Amino acid sequence: MSDLPASPVAPPIRIEGLAKRYGTDTVFTDVSLRIDPGVFVAILGESGVGKSTLLNCMAGLDHWDAGTVHLCGHDLGAAGDEQRAILRRRHVGFVFQAFHVLPHLDVAQNVGLPLLLLQAPAVERTDRVRQALAAVGLEGLDQRLPQQLSGGQLQRVAIARALVHRPALLLADEPTGNLDPGTAARVMDLLIAQTRQHGASLVLVTHSDTAARRADRVLRLTARGLEAAD
């Protein structure tokens, strides 16, 4: 990664004039957004407006039709697939509604995956995974398989995995959508506490006004772009 250093002054994510279409159908247009380090932004919007697509564009997982996306100072539009993958592994963490843990790996192995992809030394991986599990309250569950955990525990595994490599940007796509209200509130507490502890910027897309109210900024995505939520 020595050829792809993060800029010390660049915001984790900066988007200008982003537009996305599927054929002749416009998903969104003229989306501009800058998020500085440590800021929590929530994005609301109707189903189908493209919230998840916007997150995928931020991470360079999806292509767009106009505009620019800069991740930690790097122009993702000018990067090839391999460079995007390297930047994503280094600078981005993901938390999804469906958890996306691997069922054949135990908790520690799932949490350690980002470090394995970054080829961190084994001793460092073990130590960082132990710290991450302790931070999310999963000490002693490192050898459990995902099917032995509750929904709330699985989401905590996903949070630990997303932050174990200390990314600059955390992208969360409806992370409490499959949880009951009490568990959802506890997961949001943990998500916010952990991102602030690590100094990461957090982008949350959600239908939940309750979750969105926890953010530093609340925006609404429409086909015309992003605007301040009421």
Rank of each mutant, 00 (worst) to 15 (best):
A85K: 12
I86K: 15
L76N: 00
H74T: 00
K51P: 00
R84L: 06
G67W: 01
L76R: 02
A59I: 05
H74P: 00
G45K: 05
D81E: 15
H70F: 14
G60Y: 01
G67C: 03
G50M: 03
T53E: 11
G80Q: 09
V41E: 02
G80P: 07
V41M: 06
L54T: 01
D75T: 03
L87V: 02
G50E: 02
G80M: 04
F40E: 03
A85L: 13
M58I: 11
G60L: 01
I43Q: 10
N56M: 14
I43G: 06
A66G: 12
A78I: 09
H70M: 12
G50H: 04
A79R: 04
A85T: 13
V49E: 05
H70T: 12
R84M: 07
E46Q: 15
D65G: 11
A79F: 03
W64K: 08
W64T: 07
Q83H: 13
G67D: 01
G73S: 01
G67Y: 03
G48P: 10
G50V: 04
L44N: 04
W64Q: 05
G45Q: 07
D75L: 00
L87Q: 00
V39M: 12
V41C: 06
R84F: 06
M58T: 10
C72R: 00
G48C: 05
D62L: 13
D81F: 14
A78M: 09
C57L: 12
G60H: 01
E46I: 14
G38N: 05
V69S: 04
G48Q: 09
E46L: 15
V39A: 12
A66E: 12
L61C: 09
A59T: 05
G48F: 05
G80E: 07
L55Y: 04
A42N: 04
V69H: 03
A79K: 02
V69Y: 01
H70G: 11
H63G: 15
A85N: 12
W64E: 04
R88A: 01
F40Q: 02
G73I: 00
C57P: 01
D75P: 00
G77C: 08
D81V: 15
H74C: 00
A78S: 11
T68K: 14
H70I: 09
E82G: 14
E46M: 14
C57Y: 11
